[in-house]
């Protein structure tokens, strides 16, 4: 395990450029976060409607928002630079989990009452 690549006098390497990271990625995150506010309000107002499009959109947005959040935790605390095996393993575990969660929310929204309606009913139960 190398905490320092090369000797202590060598500079750190520059991360390779990636189109999915950087300013576009950042803007997408902000847009998503800001969008959650009207989406949440709209979902509760329209909850129980026969075409739960907004509820589905809210579910998808919350999953992506959560995935980005969990990914930020992994980048901060279990980075592959320091954890060459555990870091990538957890990243892939997160991706698989997020996919499964997506399927779960889809199932719940199509076969049951949907996330917003569930929260609304449990809250006044």
């Amino acid at each position: 395990m190398f905490l320092v690549v090369g000797t202590v006098n060598d500079p750190t390497t520059f991360p390779p450029p990636s189109k999915s990271h950087g300013s576009h990625h950042w803007s997408f995150e902000r847009l998503l976060s800001a969008g959650l506010v009207p989406l949440t309000a709209a979902a509760f107002v329209s909850s129980g409607s026969p075409t739960p499009l907004i509820d589905g959109l809210l579910g998808l947005s919350l999953i992506v928002h959560s995935h980005i959040g969990f990914d930020a935790l992994l980048v901060d605390y279990v980075h592959k630079r320091k954890f060459p095996k555990l870091g990538p393993l957890l990243s892939w575990t997160l991706r698989a989990t997020t996919l499964a969660v997506g399927v779960g929310v889809y199932q719940f929204n199509t076969n049951d009452v949907g996330l917003t309606e569930l929260i609304r009913r449990v809250w006044t139960a």
Binding site: S66, T97, A100, G102, G104, Q107, D112
Partner: peptide, 10 residues
């Protein structure tokens, strides 16, 4: 909570 519930329901 969201992930836990969704997986549990799945």
């Amino acid at each position: 909570l969201l992930y836990g519930f969704s997986l549990a329901y799945l």
